[in-house]
């Protein structure tokens, strides 16, 4: 199976967009106060998770579809927790959660599951 289905490319793209969006949020919500470091670290954590998920949608990706689903659910859980704790801006949290939900939707297609189960 050398040809990557379009849905898998969409999933990879969504992961990259999520990561970039997290980095943008990190820059937009940066303030010069000392306790902003925690907020920045949490945005960076979510960005890392998104980039990790994006990497799973490549030809050399090592995760099966269940692992990707688990990581996406973990990402949503963390985004929800940080948004509720008021570390994340509400609108930023909603956008990042929406991107993650789209990733889960992409992974749920039978053709995606078939390609990701090649491992």
């Amino acid at each position: 199976m050398t040809e990557i289905p379009k849905k898998i490319s969409v999933g990879c793209g969504l992961g990259l967009i999520g990561g970039v969006a997290s980095i943008i949020c990190l820059a937009v919500f940066y303030t010069s106060e000392p306790d902003t470091l925690l907020n920045m670290a949490l945005y960076m954590l979510i960005a890392c998770l998104f980039f990790g998920i994006a990497g799973a949608f490549t030809k050399t990706g090592q995760w099966g579809w269940r692992m990707i689903t688990f990581m996406a659910l973990l990402t949503i859980g963390l985004i929800a927790m940080f948004t509720v704790c008021k570390y994340f801006d509400v609108y930023a949290g909603i956008i990042l959660a929406a991107i993650t939900l789209l990733i889960i939707a992409v992974v749920s297609f039978p053709s995606s599951k078939k390609w990701l189960s090649r491992i």
Partner: peptide, 18 residues
Amino acid sequence: HHELYAGVPIIIICMIIG
């Protein structure tokens, strides 16, 4: 293999911790 049903309580628990 009902992953989405498994994810819901985990997300809810994360929100409650928050």
